[in-house]
Amino acid sequence: MLRIHFMQQWFGLSDVAMEEALYDTPLYREFSGLGGISRLPDRVSILGFRHLLERHELAEQFLKTVNERLSAKGFMLREGTVVDATLIAAPSSTKNKDGERDPEMHQAKKGNQWHFGMKAHVRPESRLNFGLTQRAVRRD
């Protein structure tokens, strides 16, 4: 739950958005260490944990400790945004009005499979932020 709380802060996600992100984003599930989808907490559990941290004034202390450890390893924390580069499939015979393929359509390989279409780089809408939004970035 603490890792989920950190992800909420780093990516500025509400409780509802965090629940959805855990279901939608394998990287979030992997980082949380909770295993399969059947073990993921719902928004009420996420809210309850956040309120527990707030009630005991632990959130800032935990984040400060994590920031110090990351900094000692050469990372610095900055505000972050998750970007989903989704492939939007199109039939390979798609042509524009001049009878040519759309120049923005390309082939892309996802896993071991090729797809024709375009990439949609989608940034989630700005969400309610509960303070201290940061993400780790390697300093070199």
Rank of each mutant, 00 (worst) to 15 (best):
L13T: 00
V137Q: 04
Q134E: 14
E79H: 08
S92R: 11
L27Q: 08
K119G: 04
Q9K: 11
G74M: 07
A90F: 06
N129G: 05
A17C: 04
K64E: 14
F75K: 03
M76Q: 14
G99M: 04
D140E: 11
Y23W: 09
S92L: 06
H51R: 15
M7I: 06
D98Y: 13
Y28A: 03
E100R: 15
E19T: 03
F75Q: 02
K64T: 12
P41E: 01
L40T: 01
L58S: 01
A90R: 07
R29Q: 01
M76Y: 13
P103K: 14
S71T: 12
G117P: 06
K97V: 10
K97L: 12
S126F: 10
S92G: 04
K73V: 05
G99Q: 02
S92D: 12
A17P: 01
V122C: 09
L53N: 06
A17Y: 02
V16N: 12
A59S: 13
K97Q: 08
G36F: 05
S45Q: 15
G33M: 08
Q9C: 14
G131R: 08
G33I: 08
V83H: 04
I46Q: 00
R135A: 11
S93Q: 09
G111Y: 06
F49A: 04
S71W: 04
F31E: 00
L87S: 02
T81K: 15
L34T: 00
T133G: 03
E60A: 12
Q8K: 12
V137H: 05
A59K: 01
G117E: 03
K73E: 13
S45A: 15
H115Q: 07
H56P: 02
L77A: 05
G80W: 08
D84M: 14
E30R: 15
R69P: 02
V16I: 14
L34M: 09
H5A: 12
H51V: 06
H5I: 06
H51D: 14
L63K: 07
L2P: 03
L27E: 09
W10Y: 13
A85C: 08
T81L: 14
D84R: 14
E19P: 03
F75M: 10
R50Q: 11
R138G: 04
H106I: 14
R69S: 09
S126R: 15
A21V: 01
S38Y: 06
W10F: 14
K73H: 08
A85G: 02
K119M: 13
F11H: 12
E20V: 05
L77Y: 02
S14C: 10
L70I: 03
Q107W: 15
I46T: 00
H115P: 04
R43K: 15
M18Q: 02
G117A: 10
R138F: 11
L53Y: 09
S126D: 08
F31P: 00
G36Y: 03
K119I: 15
G74F: 06
Y28E: 00
L52D: 08
D15E: 06
D102M: 09
